[in-house]
Design a protein around this nucleic acid. Structure first.
Length: 283
DNA sequence: GCTTGCGCCTGAATGC
DNA sequence: TGCATTCAGGCGCAAG
C-alpha cells in the first residue's frame, strides 16, 4: 500500500532513471490500467512514443512525468502499483500492465496487481495536470498552507479522520498514516472537525508531517538501478506502526488494549484511553 | 456546496 | 481438499 512517502521515493527514482530519456515504444498489456485515458490505449500509445521525459513531479499520491512541449503522463499507484527499471531483455515481472521502452535499452515497467492504479496522458499537464487540479497540496509541499487548512477544516461538519482522508482538503494521507497521526495527537477518529481546538489541529498537522518524514527517511534509500521502488511496503510498516494493525495489543504509550472499529468500509485503530471516543453532542 | 457510501480490483486468509 | 466468502484500501462519482 504505497503511502505518500513511498510515492515520493518513486518520483525520486524516476528523476534519476527516466528523466532525460526518450520513450521509443509503449506497450499496454491491460487496458484497465489506462482506463483514465478516455481516448483509449491506442491514443495513449501514439501520444507517448517519441516524447522525451524532462521532469518528475508529485502532488499527494499522484505523480506525473513531465514531457517535452508541456504535456505529461499522469500516474497513480493505487493499492499495488510499482514502477520498475529493467533491461529490455529482462524477464517481465508479475502483473506487468504497461511498458515504456527508453532510448538507452532500458524499460520503465508499471506492474499493478489490483489495477486500482494507472496512467493517462495529460495534454498541457506538465505544470499541474488539469485532472488533479482539485487535489489539495500535501504536507510535504513547501507551499502547503496550514492556516488555510485549519480554516477549511473548521468549516466542515464531519469526523476528523474523514476530513484528513479527503484529498480536496489535504492530500497524501491514507488510512494507515491517518491512524498513526491521530494516535500521536491523542485524537479519536470521530471527533467533530467543527469543535477541534486550534492546538489540536496544529498538533495533528505536526504529527502527519512527522509520520511522513520518518517514513521518507526509512524508505528513501530503498531503490537502486533495478527497482525504482521495491514496493509499497517499506520497513516502516513492519517496525514503526504504533496504531494501525495493533488491535488487541497494548498501546505503546499507556498499555491499554488497542481497539479496531469499522470505518468507511475499512478499519480504524485507536487507544480507548489516549483517544477517548467523543460523547454524542459534546465534541 | 457539502457529506456519504458504493464500486472498482485481486489474491491471501478464512469459513464451511 | 476444495469451493465460497471476506477483507484490504485510494479515489471518482453519484446520490442524498
Amino acid at each position: 500500500m504505497p503511502e505518500l512517502p513511498e510515492v515520493e521515493v518513486v518520483r525520486l527514482g524516476i528523476s534519476e532513471h527516466v528523466v532525460g530519456r526518450t520513450i521509443t515504444r509503449v506497450e499496454v498489456f491491460d487496458v484497465r490500467s489506462v482506463r483514465r485515458h478516455l481516448p483509449g490505449p491506442a491514443d495513449f500509445i501514439s501520444r507517448l512514443e517519441g516524447r522525451t521525459v524532462v521532469g518528475a513531479a508529485r502532488r499527494g499520491k499522484y505523480l506525473w512525468m513531465q514531457l517535452d512541449h508541456g504535456d505529461a503522463i499522469l500516474c497513480h499507484l493505487g493499492m499495488s502499483g510499482q514502477f520498475l527499471i529493467a533491461a529490455a531483455a529482462a524477464p517481465p515481472p508479475r502483473h506487468l500492465r504497461i511498458t515504456l521502452a527508453l532510448d538507452n535499452g532500458q524499460e520503465l515497467r508499471f506492474a499493478d496487481q489490483r489495477i486500482f492504479g494507472g496512467m493517462s496522458f495529460s495534454e498541457d499537464g506538465a505544470e499541474l495536470p488539469h485532472e488533479i487540479e482539485h487535489i489539495a497540496r500535501d504536507p510535504l509541499d513547501p507551499l502547503f498552507d496550514s492556516a488555510e487548512f485549519t480554516r477549511r477544516l473548521r468549516k466542515r461538519e464531519t469526523g476528523v479522520k474523514r476530513a484528513i482522508l479527503d484529498q480536496t482538503l489535504i492530500s497524501g494521507v491514507g488510512n494507515i498514516y491517518a491512524d498513526e497521526a491521530l494516535w500521536r495527537t491523542k485524537l479519536h477518529y470521530a471527533r467533530n472537525t467543527r469543535h477541534l481546538k486550534t492546538r489540536e489541529i496544529e498538533g495533528l498537522l505536526g504529527h502527519i508531517g512527522e509520520v511522513m518524514h520518518e517514513a521518507l527517511e526509512q524508505g528513501g534509500t530503498s531503490f537502486d538501478a533495478l527497482y525504482v521502488n521495491v514496493n509499497g511496503t517499506s520497513g516502516y510498516f513492519d517496525r514503526s506502526l504504533q496504531a494501525y494493525g495493533q488491535e488487541g495489543k497494548p498501546c505503546q504509550r499507556c498499555g491499554t488494549i488497542m481497539r479496531r472499529s469499522a470505518f468507511m468500509n475499512r478499519s480504524s485503530y485507536w487507544c480507548p484511553t489516549c483517544q477517548p471516543r467523543p460523547r454524542h453532542g459534546k465534541f
